[in-house]
Design a protein around this nucleic acid. Structure first.
Length: 597
DNA sequence: GCCCATACTTAGAACAGCGAAG
DNA sequence: CTTCGCTGTTCTAAGTATGGGC
């Protein structure tokens, strides 16, 4: 009944091409540009995401295996045999012993509280102080275990492959698609980012009874493990998830969804960039509008306009409200507080400088000194008047008000579209600027460096940071050593070339001429190698604290990169690895060398 | 307008595995 | 053959956005 296309990429591309034709015909009245066309597999309207969905359900975490009796736990220096429930939770802590987390007060407190809940009443009365607990034997045991596992990876790999084949795919409409996360998250201790009030809490084990299955009525339903039941099997084709459950730390819902290479994700991704391109067409109008609004007599409109200016100019996130005390204290644009900004009438020779200092998503620090227009500056002074540091900067604004306004300016526009738009347009502009310098047609490494620099400009704009790799200094030194050695080698080769030339001048025979030629080539080759190394060093140094991956994966219209590769004869493999090529298959297929964002 | 639930995207860290160097 | 260092992959937390009920 259902035909399965095993070749995923052409299937997706056909869908995309079909829709492309549709776009030309319909000139995008809204975002319904997946128009039924030629194929029986239509692009659905009114929120329907699929017609047929069949899958095998999730893979559960392996059951707990009690510790061998020689691995002991000590309390106050004395051996103590733990009940299975308490022991399992203890192993979660033991596995993290080397991590800084386990030294943090909040983490220890939360862990101990949740651990005690799993203890027998006897254990509860004995174990009253976490500081007296000695998990070191457990910790050593797990280290040894993971060493042992490395040695027998072959079997494990085979088992993983089997699981992937059985559970890693589903059928959505006529295609076999890869599932992103078909394994249920194993139990453990919650690790929040930054100063999270819930760090260390017990993340409980998920059982079949917690699981909601979503699939089509006429599909073969996934079977729960023997002796168990699903919480529910439903058939909701207005959503894309296959499996969901409620997590116990925040009470939020978790989902199993498809891989980025799937049709459903690919189309959504494409739509996202089309939306950003629509913003490009009207961004001048919107900018003119918010500049006008800086002068409004209504405070709420001024606040909205200044916030939008920040979102546009600085690529800030929208900044939804968060429940206090439930998560780390982080903010975005609309939730900025007075304490996050310092106004400088004059700073470093510039007028009207705003100094931002706050923690954003994932508790990554945003620090920036930005000269702004006088009117913005005056407005900020006004917003901050008579407020305490912990008061909201934009007290008449939130993300829902802002997005409602944006919706009126352009159909489908939301705050996050500005980030996508500004990221992609920056890449395109930077590529144009940086690449035009390079005259040598064949200098691929230099072009890649330029690409990385353009990518980096975006990452800096979006504040995508990473912890500098632990081995950074050392690896930098190693590279420098290599460069020095290469330089010496080059000097030697040049010397040899010189003497070969002198030799040829005297002898004037074929053999010595040939020797000169080969020496020349050697010098050239070494020069190329040297340049490659130097480029690598520059690239790495500049990348120390910047993460390029996030913008590449989520903000940069892949068609820009594909077109750039085609234009300069760079193999796409130099820019996108295999996974990325799968995710961006639609763009690789679609974009020609003259594509413009 | 506000609150809550839901669904989906975006994010950095941890981990695994592979190729080059020793 | 082993170790090292880097790249690609996996993991799951933390955002954005919307819509329904009051």
């Amino acid at each position: 009944m259902v035909q399965i296309t095993n070749v995923l990429v052409p299937a997706l591309c056909t869908a995309v091409l079909v829709a492309c034709v549709g776009m030309l015909v319909y000139i995008l009245p809204s975002l319904c540009f997946f128009i039924p066309f030629r194929w029986e597999e239509e692009r659905y309207t009114d929120g329907v995401k699929w017609k047929f969905l069949e899958h095998k359900g999730p893979v559960f975490a392996p059951p707990y295996e009690p510790l061998p009796s020689n691995v002991k736990f000590y309390y106050d220096g004395k051996h103590m045999k733990l009940s299975p429930g308490a022991e399992e939770v203890a192993t979660f802590f033991a596995k993290m012993l080397d991590h800084e987390y386990t030294t943090k007060d909040v983490f220890r407190k939360n862990f101990f509280k949740d651990w005690r809940k799993e203890m027998t009443s006897e254990e509860k009365s004995k174990l009253t102080d976490l500081n007296k607990c000695d998990f070191s034997e457990m910790s050593e045991y797990f280290k040894a275990q993971s060493e042992a596992r490395k040695a027998m990876t072959k079997e494990e790999k085979l088992e993983n492959e089997r699981l992937l084949q059985e559970y890693g795919f589903c059928i959505m409409d006529n295609h076999k698609e890869r599932i992103a996360n078909f394994r249920i998250e194993p139990p453990g201790l919650f690790r929040g980012r930054g100063d999270h009030p819930k760090m260390g809490m017990l993340k409980r084990r998920i059982r079949p009874e917690d699981i909601i299955i979503n699939c089509s009525k006429d599909s073969k339903y996934p079977k729960p493990p023997p002796g168990t039941k699903w919480k529910e099997v439903r058939h909701d084709n207005k959503v894309t998830w296959l499996v969901s459950w409620t997590e116990n730390i925040q009470g939020s819902i978790k989902y199993i969804m498809l891989n980025p290479s799937s049709r459903i994700k690919g189309e959504k991704d494409w739509q996202k960039y089309e939306m950003a391109r629509r913003l490009k067409k009207c961004v001048d109008r919107i900018r003119a509008q918010y500049r006008e609004d800086w002068k409004s007599k209504e405070m709420r409109i001024r606040q909205r306009a200044v916030a939008l200016y920040f979102i546009d100019k600085l690529a800030l996130r929208a900044g939804n409200e968060k429940e206090e005390g439930e998560t780390a204290d982080t903010v975005g644009c609309c939730s900025l507080r007075v304490e996050h900004l310092t106004l400088h009438q004059e700073m470093d020779g510039q007028e009207y400088v705003v100094e931002f200092d706050f923690l954003g998503k994932d508790s990554i620090r945003y620090y920036n000194k930005v000269p702004v227009e006088k009117r913005v500056f005056k407005n900020l002074q006004l917003f901050m008047e008579d407020k305490e540091p912990e008061d909201d900067l934009f007290d008449r604004l939130n993300t829902s008000i802002l997005n409602k306004h944006l919706q009126e300016l352009m159909d489908g526009l939301t705050a996050k579209v500005f980030r996508t738009y500004n990221a992609s347009i920056t890449l395109q502009q930077q590529l144009n600027e940086l690449t035009s310098f390079i005259c040598t047609v064949y200098n691929v490494p230099a072009k890649i460096l330029s690409y990385n620099r353009a990518n980096r400009a975006v990452a800096i704009l979006c504040n995508h940071q990473r912890a500098p790799p632990k081995t950074f200094e050392k690896s930098m030194q190693n590279l420098q050593t290599k460069i020095d050695a290469k330089k010496e080698q080059l000097a030697d080769a040049k010397r040899e070339l010189k003497s070969a030339k002198a030799d040829a001048k005297v002898r004037r025979d074929e053999k010595s001429k040939k020797a000169v030629e080969s020496k020349k080539k050697a010098v050239q080759r070494i020069e190329e190698q040297l340049m490659k190394l130097e480029v690598q060093a520059t690239d790495r140094e500049e990348n120390k604290q910047i993460a390029l991956g996030t913008s590449k994966l989520n903000y940069l219209d892949p068609r820009i990169s594909v077109a750039w590769c085609k234009k300069f004869g760079i193999p796409i493999e130099k820019i996108y690895n295999k996974t990325q090529r799968e995710k961006f298959a639609w763009a690789i297929d679609m974009a020609e060398k003259d594509y413009e964002f």
